[in-house]
Design a protein around this nucleic acid. Structure first.
Length: 426
RNA sequence: GGAGAGGUGGCUGAGCGGUCGAAAGCGCUCCCCUGCUAAGGGAGUAUACCCCCAUACGGGGUAUCGAGGGUUCGAAUCCCUCCCUCUCCGCCA
């Protein structure tokens, strides 16, 4: 959510940002400003009436104390009238505020000037390519391999829960655990504090990071207890500091957290959901930063580099995309996607998305910092995956597979695996 | 799940229908005194929003005493619903 004052002072800039992001109705900027104006003038009127009412109520108290009941009674009949007027205005105020809020929630974050303007994924900029994607490849897609070897059981997963909830068996379960450990350790080395978090969150938290309104369809719900299963660790981790005022000394805050993630993925079927490409439950190590507004874009670069370094250490070819305005998402001001090369599928798979949200999330969550002069200021938040497991696993299975169907283990994972190769016999 | 107690400012803790945004203590900040150490004196010290002044500073107002609703001219104080914490019982990893 953007600051209304900011919108009021920069209406054209916000409208242009909306157009660049492919939003169709930039005129809601004008609507917000108009409603805000009405709201503000009504606030003033209402506050004045309340002031009068408060003053009179005190007077009544005084008179009652002195036993002057009749005089008090006169004022009471006046304040009773006042009360009705106030109530009327309060109702109007409430509906104006809600209308303003509804519109504000429809205005996306303003992209940073370094973000390329564009409509679709074709306008994203290839920021960096690392390693050598093998375009002509004999290797099998990971789903064939894992089924042959019995490493991932999609069918039993479907029996036990449903499609998109696989079992990882034996060496594959161990491989995932190795990756989780590796990612968490690397996060710790880079200064991220590890958090173990609740896997269900309440409505306020879902609202804080922007899953609701609008995106509630992505989440599994537990209606009886009014919880949502987290679609990413971002939700509990960022909400960790909701409604807090942080000291400047505390900033920047870096957190990392491993969690399963649950996503309904309603409406996505077809070939890009094969195997590990898209699941309803998957594991992810998430990175979250809460930072001083002035350093946010530098923090985004270091976040991106950290995520990239993980892929480099695993020796997996990847490319980094700088997302264009139209493809970056509603809440982001700048975003990089990291994609690994899948030789078995001959395509790129997204394994991380590193974003700067500016003050957009923090404003909804009221995470602030204390400035030198005592004022408060909304902080900036960032997050990125470091990394999402299934597609990294898919890439490892495809890149590291050998002709006999065994999988070499990347060097950095061997200490966690206790072996340098996995075969069906393990 | 059952029974009881409670949720007040950074913390401790008063207040139980009017003059309470809230005593007192602690902590913190600034100033004064004291030539080290210790101690003493004074002032300040929640958040959000609106208005004035105007971009620093300042002034005025409104709301908030777990959350939401209600009673009342007036609620931290009374009533209702919900959330959370603590104690005992039950259950359990």
């Amino acid at each position: 959510m953007l600051d209304v004052t900011y919108i009021r002072n920069n209406p054209d800039l916000v409208k242009q940002a909306m157009k660049n992001k492919g939003e169709e109705n930039p005129q809601i900027v004008d609507e917000v400003i108009s409603i805000d104006e009405q709201w503000r003038s009504l606030v003033e009127e209402t506050d004045n009436l309340r002031n009068e009412s408060n003053t009179k109520a005190k007077k009544i108290g005084e008179l009652m104390g002195q036993g002057k009941k009749e005089e008090a009674q006169e004022i009471i009949s006046y304040t009773t009238e006042l009360k009705e007027q106030i109530q009327e205005k309060e109702d109007k105020l409430r509906s104006l505020k809600r209308a303003r809020e509804d519109l504000l929630l429809k205005i996306p974050n303003v992209p940073h000037e370094s973000v390329p303007v564009g409509q679709t994924e074709n306008d994203n900029e290839v920021f960096k390519t690392w390693g050598d994607p093998d375009k002509e490849d004999w290797r099998k897609p990971h789903w064939e391999l894992v089924e042959e070897q019995g490493w991932i059981d999609f069918d039993r997963g479907a029996k036990v829960t449903g499609a998109g909830f696989p079992f990882y068996v034996g060496p594959l379960a161990r491989l995932q655990r190795a990756l989780i450990n590796y990612f968490l350790n690397r996060g710790a080395e880079a200064g991220y504090t590890e958090l173990q978090v609740p896997y269900f969150v309440n409505e306020d938290s879902a609202r804080g990071t922007g899953q609701i309104p609008d995106k509630e369809d992505m989440m599994y719900e537990i209606p009886r207890d009014e919880f949502f299963a987290i679609p990413t660790a971002e939700v509990p981790v960022t909400n960790f500091h909701r409604d807090e005022i942080l000291e400047d000394d505390d900033l920047p805050l870096y957190y990392t957290s491993y969690t399963p993630c649950w996503r309904r993925e309603a409406g996505s079927y077809g070939k890009d959901v094969r195997g590990l490409n898209r699941l309803h439950q998957f594991d992810k190590v998430e990175l979250v930063k809460i930072v001083h507004p002035e350093t946010a874009y530098d923090e985004l670069e270091s976040l991106r580099k950290h995520a990239e370094s993980l892929l480099e250490e695993l020796d997996i070819p990847y490319r980094t995309l700088l997302m264009c305005t139209g493809d970056m998402g509603f809440t982001q001001s700048k975003k990089y996607d990291l994609e690994v090369w899948s030789p078995g599928q001959q395509q790129w798979l997204e394994v991380s998305s590193c974003s700067n949200f500016g003050s957009f999330q923090a404003r909804r969550m009221m995470i602030r910092r204390r400035k030198e002069n005592g004022d408060t200021e909304i902080v900036h938040t960032l997050n990125g995956s470091g990394l999402a497991l299934p597609r990294v696993v898919a890439a490892i299975l495809e890149i590291y597979q050998q002709e006999d169907g065994s999988i070499k283990i990347p060097d950095v994972l061997q200490p966690f695996m206790g072996t340098d190769v996995i075969t069906s016999e393990i």
